[in-house]
Write a protein that binds this DNA or RNA. Structure first.
Lengths: 339, 339
DNA sequence: CTGAAAGCGCTTACAG
DNA sequence: CTGAAAGCGCTTACAG
């Protein structure tokens, strides 16, 4: 039989209210009483019953906030769906979710959104931050006020955020390179189309990919271009790149824009091996059509879901994440195991 | 604000107990009263609060049973870990888990284990059944007594089990074939080592694999052998097969035994492409060593987890699975994205 | 600093 | 066939 607050109270010779105050750091307990209660709880291996807790939480008004910097984007829709699924499961705790989405890289907007959530008194926030000091400072300010903050899908430098939840970008690049180890054993001459060289995640992917290629015989990165996540720019950049370097036999799309790039390759009649990231509808079509051979995905749904789980543990159970990085799995999809 | 039993009771002009009886088919409610209560609940979009439910369930003694036919097997350990994780999360409902493991294909033992669980009055069972009519009959007998039964990892013919949770074996074979489409573009001449031709799942994998190869240029299945899931037999069978057919350029392990097979290939100095299933420690080592190029996994943890979720929904919320087949994802792993 | 009591939503044994 | 009351485990506003 699991241990309850009532049993601890009886053993300690105090009321249940006092046990609650002692175990949840609510103050107003004589130090030695608190120590005794903690000892008894530890000895009996007490873990609070979530159902009891949930019921009592009904009377509170707890909300989490989520700030993602990519409005109406298929990938982030999936992240948000994961977050909503988690908070729906926590609905019995009466936990709500405030969603703020942004477009482009508008720092002012993101600062405002954080401030809005602060005013709305959310208990915790998961954010896809723009990697700038102003944002890091604002995040730390919220942390100081007791709002738990974690980063989601992209990380930020110089902040005290609890942890990062998202893609292991470096490993994602290594995995893309590993696929080429198998698909291009005679040697890889790769053109990389990234989103932006300002994006931490994209760069980490490129590092992993390049490091991997360095280990393969007769393989190298030949050229690199930016798509700014746009299909038309990707088309133009890829076209120019393939014309510059007729020896390229492989394209690696480290971000969005694969559709335009694939079109360019097709127009030139180039017989390339093409690896991309994620499995948006567009990517899936290109895989079915044979323009992309494989794609490395990052479990967007689970990113949102895990983020909310971590916030829940921190806010409701006071259990902080022990790891700084909560990485998703790198999922390889080819035509035959698309979902 | 979510709707509660209390609100429905007030609107219907009855007590909360009556609402409970009406909505949960406990009988003893006048038909027209029941109808009115149901109407009100539907109109307000009532969904029971899980926390309240959980707390009330504390006083019941609910246990699920799980019968897996593979004692001390690394793969099934992972399935069991998933099942335990789920029931631990349901611990607040006071739900326990009775585990029965068996070895080999001992029908009598499995029948006994089912009977044991019946006597222990479990509410639901997930089973990896031996595919024989006696087992199907026993499962149906339990269903008639109100015990919810689902199949886990392998299915059975001719039973009324609620649903199957596990690998999509056919798709797993197709995915293995798809990998060869990319790794052996010049044509696949495959030797297949299966576990047993009596195993439904293994056969489905072989079907998927063969169907896929039929679509590839200059590709075919050259030979097939059984390992009976043993490494030594796999070694002998693979050795003989490769000697019989020096033209084989590909090995597909549709079940356990890959280690022995890989050893045989290495001894003959054959330069083969090798695809396996699952990612046990042994398989992972062979992938790292370069003996296996890729493996197709089936989310064993999630199989156990989902099975318990489905039983929970059926027993606690009375919600039966709508789909007959709950398939896992086919996860491709290569050296670079091993876990 | 501490206790008694009420309440979160659902279920059930009991009385009628 | 129905209602009133108690209880599951946790939290909190209130009184002292």
């Amino acid at each position: 039989m699991p241990v309850t607050v009532r049993q601890i109270a009886e053993l300690a010779g105090v009321s249940r209210g006092t046990v609650d105050r002692a175990l949840n750091n609510r103050g107003n307990v004589k130090p030695e009483v608190e120590r005794r209660i903690r000892e008894i709880a530890a000895e009996l291996g007490y873990t609070p019953n979530r159902a009891g807790k949930a019921l009592a939480y009904q009377r509170k008004d707890i909300r989490f906030g989520i700030v993602v910097n990519a409005q109406g984007n298929e990938f982030f829709d999936e992240v948000l769906r994961g977050a909503r699924t988690a908070t729906d499961e926590y609905a019995d705790f009466g936990i709500g979710l405030e969603i703020r989405t942004g477009q482009g890289y508008d720092v002012e907007q993101q600062l405002e959104q954080l401030e809005e959530l602060r005013i709305q008194r959310v208990s915790a926030i998961a954010i896809t931050p723009i990697n700038l000091p102003e944002i890091a400072r604002k995040m730390d300010q919220l942390m100081e006020e007791g709002i738990q903050v974690i980063t989601l899908n992209s990380d930020i430098e110089g902040s005290r955020r609890l942890c990062y939840v998202g893609c292991n970008y470096y490993q994602s690049g290594v995995t893309a390179g590993g696929l080429l180890r198998l698909l291009r054993p005679a040697g890889v001459r790769a053109g990389i189309i990234t989103g932006s060289v300002k994006m931490l995640g994209h760069n980490r992917r490129i590092s992993g990919f390049s490091d991997m290629l360095r280990q393969l015989p007769d393989s190298q990165v030949v050229d690199l271009a930016e798509s700014l996540d746009g299909s038309q720019i990707a088309y133009e950049q890829t076209l120019a790149m393939l014309q510059r370097h007729p020896d390229i036999n492989t394209l690696y799309f480290a971000a969005a824009g694969a559709a335009g790039g694939a079109r360019a390759a097709e127009e030139l009649g180039a017989r390339l091996t093409t690896i991309s990231c994620d499995d948006t509808r567009e990517i899936a079509q290109l895989i079915r059509a044979g323009n992309i051979q494989a794609t490395v995905c990052q479990e967007p749904f689970r990113q949102g879901y895990r983020a909310m789980q971590i916030l829940f543990e921190a806010v409701v159970n006071g259990v902080m994440p022990t790891e700084q990085y909560c990485y998703m799995d790198n999922i390889i999809r080819i035509r035959e195991n698309l979902q």
